[in-house]
Amino acid sequence: MSFLAFFLIVVSLLSFVAAQLILKRAMEATTTTGFRNPQFVSKVTGGILLMTISFFLTLGLLQRFDLSYLYPFQGLSVIFITLMAAVVLKEKLNMRLAVGALLISAGIVLVSMS
């Protein structure tokens, strides 16, 4: 696999993770300030934009590689989102959640490889 392909896989994964975190931030803000504020709108727009980038990158990759090859990378999103939510959003992360996320990721990798 070329360096470019690997790079695109990573960018697609990271933009998906970033999108989820930004959407979470946007929705959390609505609990205090409601839906009609510019911050909410800009964050949701940003989140959807990042998801779109991730979607089309994946689509382009799917044309060149097998789904069974690309899908395990999506499984990794569980680990990434759990870790990043703990770091960026300061969500509480205990051993149980971390091990759970790890097992789910490993399971998805196995399911998509076989």
Binding site: L97, G100, I104, A106, G107, I108, V111, S112
Partner: peptide
């Protein structure tokens, strides 16, 4: 793989 995911889901 399915078993691993189920165990992970149960933990979470």
């Amino acid at each position: 793989g399915i078993a691993l995911v189920v165990i992970g889901l149960a933990l979470v």
